[in-house]
Design a protein around this nucleic acid. Structure first.
Lengths: 270, 270
DNA sequence: GGCTACCTCGTACAGTGTTCGAGAGCCAAG
DNA sequence: CTTGGCTCTCGAACACTGTACGAGGTAGCC
C-alpha cells in the first residue's frame, strides 16, 4: 500500500470499535494514539511508520493491528484527538463573536503545534467525537445569540474552514522551523534568481509584492481574513435577529456548478 | 522513503532546471507531468507511483529521474501546472470584486476537478511560475481599483486561502464520487449509531445540525463564506480609496502569539 | 570512425503497510 | 490441577514503494 493520502476510500468509524482494555494489557489504543502524535511531532510525519511506532512503544509493529484496524484508522484517531485539544480550549465568554474568534485562533494554534500532522487533516475527513462536540458547542454559542440552526451551521463551517485551511497552508511553509539557515538562504537565492527571469513589463507588481509580503506576518494575515469572515457573519446574525429569520443570505448561485461535485451524500459535510 | 507528505524539507526550484529537450528524446518533462495528472485523476493518488507512471509512458521507472529530481519535485510541478489551469481561466471584467469571486470559484472548480491531487497542495508549498503569475494578476486587478500593494496582497491571500482551503476539505469528503452506494449507506448507518450514543442533554443541537447540514449544498456553503470574505475586502478597499492610504486594517494582535510559528523567513508566504 | 554528451533503464537496497498464523498468558470451568 | 478458550503479542513473509548506481545505447559533431 502506497501513499498516506486517500489510501482507503472505505469509511470507517473507529470510535465505535474501541477495545475494552481489560486486565493487564500492555498496549491501549490511547497510548498508541498518543505515541503516534508525539512521534510525528518530534520526528516528522515520515517517521510515523507502524514499525517505528511499535518500537517507541516497546512492542512489535504488528501488535498495533490488534488495537487499530490499519494506519488510516490510526490517523483518524490522531486527528480527532488533536481536534480534542481545540475543544479543551473552548471557553464561553459573554460574546459569541469573541468565542468564534478564539476558536479560530485555537484551531490555528493547535494545528501549528502539530504541524507535521496538519497535512493529514487535509486528506482525511473528520467525524470523530471531539469534532462533533466542538461543532455542537459552536452551534450552541451562535444559537444563544438568536441565530437559527442553518445560519449557525453556515457560519461555524466558514470559521472552521477558514482557520483550518489557513493553518494547513501555513504549516506547509518551506521556510518552516525545521529548515536550516542554509536552506533558507538557498531558497531565497533561487527565488530571487527565478523572479529575475520574469519579464518586468508583464510582472509589474511581483517584485514589490515580494518585498511587501516579507513584511506581513502570518499573524497579521490570519487576523485580517478572520476579521472579514466574522464581519460578514455578524451582519448575518444581527440581520436574522432583528428581521426575524429569513437570513438565508441569498440563494445559492447554481450557475456554473462544477461538474462531478464530490459530495452527493446527505451528511454533515466539512 | 515513506510518506508522500513532507518527505523532503529541502526546498527545490525545479522550474530553473528544465532540460533543454533536444532532438530525439522520448520523454519530456511536460509529458511526464501531464501523464502524472491524468494518472492521479483517473486512478487516484495511490496509483501515482514512479513505476506505474513509467509504465503508462512506455518507459522505465527510473528513466523519469533524468527529467525530474525526485517524486516531490514532480509533485511540485504537478501542483503548479494545476494552478496554471486556474490562471488560464482568469479574465478581467470591469469589476475587481467579480474578478476575485470568479478566481475563487475557479480555484475550487480546478481543485475539485483534480480532487485526488488536492491534498498534495496541502502538503507542499507552491511557488511555481503559474502561482506567481496568478498572484501578479490578482494584485494588478486590486491595484487598478486604487488599492495599495499591502492591502492587495492581504486581500488576495485571503481569497486564495479561503477558496483553496475550502476545496481541499471538500475533496476529502468520505461520501465522494468514488464511494459506492454501499459505502454511503454503511457510513450513514454508522454515523447514526454513533450519534445515538451521545447523551442528548449534552448534545441538544447535534441532531438538528445533522439534518440541516444535509440540506446545505457545498455550493451554498462556499458562496456564503466567499461573500463574507469579499464584503470585508470591499470595505477595506473602498476605505483605502476614499480615505487615501492608511488601510492597514488595524495592527496585528500580537497577543497570544502561538509559539514556534513556522515561517520566520522573509518570503512571499502562502 | 571515434568522441562526447545526453538519455534510458535493469538491478538492488532499504523501507513501507498489512496478512497470517503460531504462540504466550490469563481466566474460568470441569 | 488440568483443560479449554479467549485475549493479546509478534515473527515471518508478501507485494509494494522511492531512488542510487552504473552499464549501455544513441544521436550529433569533428
Amino acid at each position: 500500500m502506497p501513499d498516506t493520502e486517500s489510501r482507503s476510500p472505505r469509511v470507517s468509524f473507529p470510535w465505535l470499535t474501541e477495545r475494552p482494555a481489560d486486565a493487564r494489557t500492555h498496549l491501549t489504543r490511547d497510548q498508541i494514539v498518543e505515541a503516534a502524535i508525539r512521534l510525528a511531532d518530534t520526528e516528522g510525519l515520515e517517521a510515523l511508520s507502524m514499525r517505528r511506532l511499535g518500537q517507541v512503544l516497546d512492542a512489535g509493529a504488528t501488535s498495533l493491528y490488534w488495537h487499530v484496524r490499519n494506519k488510516d484508522e490510526l490517523l483518524d484517531l490522531v486527528v480527532d484527538r488533536i481536534i480534542g485539544e481545540v475543544r479543551d480550549e473552548m471557553r464561553s465568554t459573554g460574546s459569541w463573536r469573541a468565542d468564534l474568534e478564539e476558536t479560530a485562533r485555537s484551531i490555528r494554534r493547535v494545528l501549528v503545534r502539530h504541524r507535521h500532522i496538519a497535512p493529514v487533516i487535509g486528506s482525511r475527513p473528520t467525524f470523530g467525537p471531539h469534532a462533533v462536540a466542538a461543532l455542537e458547542w459552536l452551534i450552541g454559542r451562535l444559537r444563544s445569540a438568536g441565530t437559527d440552526v442553518r445560519t449557525a451551521l453556515l457560519a461555524s463551517q466558514s470559521v472552521i474552514n477558514y482557520a483550518a485551511g489557513f493553518a494547513v497552508f501555513e504549516c506547509r511553509d518551506p521556510l518552516g522551523i525545521d529548515s536550516s539557515e542554509d536552506d533558507r538562504r538557498a531558497f531565497m537565492e533561487q527565488l530571487g534568481r527565478f523572479v529575475g527571469t520574469l519579464p518586468a513589463d508583464q510582472y509589474p507588481n511581483t517584485l514589490e509584492t515580494l518585498e511587501v509580503g516579507a513584511s506581513i506576518t502570518p499573524d497579521e494575515q490570519f487576523e485580517y481574513g478572520l476579521r472579514q469572515v466574522l464581519n460578514g457573519i455578524e451582519a448575518d446574525v444581527t440581520n436574522v435577529r432583528t428581521r426575524g429569520r429569513g437570513g438565508r443570505a441569498a440563494p445559492a448561485p447554481t450557475r456554473r456548478p462544477h461538474r462531478r461535485g464530490p459530495q452527493t451524500g446527505p451528511a454533515l459535510r466539512r
